[in-house]
Design a protein around this nucleic acid. Structure first.
Lengths: 202, 202
DNA sequence: AATATTTATTGAACGATGTTCAAGATTCCT
DNA sequence: AGGAATCTTGAACATCGTTCAATAAATATT
């Protein structure tokens, strides 16, 4: 009994790592169960002993990506001068850099769509909600009068705006923007947004 | 000869309309050649007489979506008070509304990924570049000193930021934001961004 | 230790799907 | 009308994710 469980657990970890590597190198569309099975040395059908779906597999890889992203944002939050404005700029740049360095894994976070009937597992939802807290803290310093609710909304807006710049900026489909130019643009617009928000908050 | 060409042309139009309808109702992933063939009354393989790929089909639907989006933004540009700030706000709201009302078709614009080797046809690229001009004009009024190049970059940044708010705001995956709240947030952040940009340029 | 029972793994098979292509149907030219 | 050129067809192919009866392995029982 324990022999089997140990083997399964080790294989499951290998499977998720192989899937991560495969998405990173070939994109989400390049993830194939048969290739994964060959990679970790088991039968094609055995993948479904380790994971119920490819959906779950993608979600598990996504969880790892989100945690690494979280670490990158945490590092940016504390490194450098502590003024809230500059902290927010560093977080935005860190988000951009992470996306550029983990392009396919980062894309997989947003490209993946589950069948409409299936619902997201709790652990996956929680992973995602954690991200906003990096923006929440500096914002709270900037706007001490605002309620928790208002701050959450502003945090999500700010995050979304930066996300949009990164998403379209890294898109190869149209004109590929050079990374340094993109970083500069992001820093500029984040500063402008904060200035504007502060001015309007009076 | 002309009999055939007429038939083909009519069928091609029907095919693209059927594809548009199918994406709108079932999403990009719900687009199936066999269903399309049944819909327009021809053989499965005949689809490839009208279009070389499903890639091309998606691009043709995308072209129609982009043109409708262009019209919606044009309407927003001229309706209402002519101040550049408020014009930009109207355009942003119009983008949000269009995305909400054409959710799956709008998503298809960004979800679709062609095989890496194939290149985007020119007509598709041109379609996309037209979008920024709506933002370019009001921006030029706000920043008369800036060069064409600088204005283009700012226009793309502003567009991308709004796009990000719409994209994450309409995502069902996480917390679905009520549309009125999203519109309000977008208006607020666009005004803040413009205020900030003007202040920094001053 | 040998055997029976329970459990896990396997890979062939299934149903979809995009795409191709030889054969049959249609159109066109003389 | 008849033959050449062209177009349409749908069966066939390759590739997927997923399932499941059969085989192999691990565990329990005697």
């Amino acid at each position: 009994m324990t022999k089997t469980l140990e083997r399964r657990e080790k294989l499951r970890v290998e499977l998720i790592q192989a899937a991560e590597q495969m998405i990173a190198s070939r994109g989400l569309a390049g993830l194939k169960t048969r290739d994964l099975a060959r990679e970790i040395g088991c039968a094609n059908g055995a993948v479904y002993n380790l994971v119920t779906d490819v959906d779950e597999l993608v979600l598990r890889v996504g969880s790892r990506t989100l945690h690494r992203l979280d670490e990158a944002l945490s590092a940016a939050e504390s490194a450098g001068e502590p003024s809230p404005q500059e902290t927010l700029v560093r977080i935005a740049i860190a988000y951009c850099d992470f996306a550029a360095e983990n392009l396919e894994l980062w894309r997989a976070l947003f490209e993946h769509r589950m069948a409409a009937n299936k619902i997201l597992p709790d652990w996956s939802v929680n992973d995602q909600l954690q991200l906003f807290r990096h923006i929440y803290h500096p914002l709270a310093l900037l706007f001490p009068k605002r309620s928790q609710e208002e701050l959450s909304i502003t945090a999500r807006s700010l995050f979304s705006a930066v996300h949009g710049m990164v998403a379209l900026g890294l898109e190869q489909k149209l004109v590929a923007v050079p990374l340094p130019a993109l970083r500069k643009e992001i820093a500029g617009l984040v500063r402008a947004m904060i200035d504007g928000l502060v001015a309007r908050a009076g």
